[in-house]
């Protein structure tokens, strides 16, 4: 490989890492809800959207404080509180009446919800993109990799590493929550068998509300980071969540490990196909990989196989 090609390979891999971290977070929000409640949330992208916009609004309102660090910290706390509320409300008002209905109805109600949230965001903030007043993640100068014989040096933004770190910390916290905390274990029990969990004294309602708010928080954090990467909030944030569907199907709908591996796998497929074949292939390449995997493994790579009885 020539030095230029090595640098190109490095650049594409580096892009894939930050994209992958975002996809992992988005996919995680979907998997969380699917595992505990058997619902696939088509409004996930809208949770990201509303998280991004709430963050934007808080950053503006909190300008009265002097230190940017304090503003960002308070804004993030605000976003977490608000999205928790939204998650609980959505579960209570929209999803709970549909328990026991066919999958298609549940899919449709989340699609309806996504339209409502998009409309609300559009009515409040309009459709023009708005730049964030303060950087959520501090901007450091890029580090530079030079190779002998290469035409141009490679500049890598350190933001990627921070996003990656945030994703890892969040995933780690969630895993710790599932392994160690009382409610996390209750969530796993609910995911495993709702009837059995209920008879052991676990409040299914509380667990569902908890799941939806955790997923909403995860999605909102992803939304904030996308807003940072794209230098502002816009109506396009929710489109990123469509890219997470191949991820969760590839990894298996109910597997957290699947979401992590699938997220990076799809990000690498997107990055390399756009770099080496054609930029436009990026949108379809994940789906083609997905179809091939589904032909061989119909429940994804790590998905639990359902045994059906008649």
């Amino acid at each position: 490989m020539s030095p230029d090609e090595i640098l190109k390979f490095l650049r594409l891999s580096y892009t894939a890492l930050s994209d992958g971290a975002l996809l992992v977070l988005i996919a995680l929000a979907l998997v969380l809800i699917y595992k505990a409640t058997d619902v696939i949330n088509f409004a996930n992208g809208e949770f990201m959207l509303i998280g991004g916009y709430i963050g934007y609004q808080l950053l503006i309102w909190l300008q009265v404080f002097e230190s940017p660090g304090l503003i960002v910290l308070l804004a993030i706390i605000g976003v977490v509180v608000m999205t928790t509320l939204i998650g609980v409300l959505v579960e209570r008002l929209v999803l709970r009446p549909l328990i026991g209905e066919p999958i298609i109805s549940v899919i449709m109600v989340t699609i309806g919800l996504s339209n409502v949230i998009q409309a609300i965001v559009g009515l409040i903030w309009g459709k023009n993109p708005r730049p964030l007043p303060i950087d959520i993640i501090p901007r450091f100068s890029p580090f530079r990799i030079e190779l002998e014989g290469a035409r141009r040096p490679l500049n890598l933004l350190p933001d990627t590493l921070i996003i990656l770190a945030v994703a890892f910390v969040l995933v780690g916290l969630l895993l710790l929550f599932f392994r160690r905390s009382k409610h996390g274990i209750a969530m796993r029990a609910t995911a495993d068998d709702q009837q059995a969990a209920m008879s052991m004294g676990i409040s299914i309602r509380f667990i569902f509300a908890l799941t939806w708010s955790l997923a909403a928080i995860t999605a909102a954090v992803a939304g904030l980071m996308i807003a940072h990467v794209t230098n502002g909030v816009s109506g396009d944030i929710h489109n990123v969540s469509l890219r997470a569907f191949p991820v969760i199907i590839l990894g298996g709908l109910d597997s957290i490990a699947g979401a992590i591996i699938g997220g990076f796998a799809i990000a690498f497929v997107e990055s390399f196909s756009s770099g080496y074949i054609d930029p436009s292939v990026k949108t379809v390449a994940p789906y083609i990989v997905l179809l091939i995997v589904l032909m061989v493994k119909p429940y994804g790579l790590f998905g639990q196989k359902r045994i059906e009885r008649v």
Binding site: V94, P97, L98, E101, S105, M108, V109, I111, G112, L113, S114, N115, V116, I117, Q118, A119, I120, G122, L123, G126, K127
Partner: peptide, 24 residues
């Protein structure tokens, strides 16, 4: 002009939700 598309979208979504809850 600016509000109409959002009102259309919001009503569409709201009606789907209400329909599914009231009469699946």
């Amino acid at each position: 002009v600016t509000v109409l598309p959002f009102v259309q979208q919001g009503t569409f979504g709201l009606l789907i939700i209400l329909m599914l809850i009231v009469e699946p």
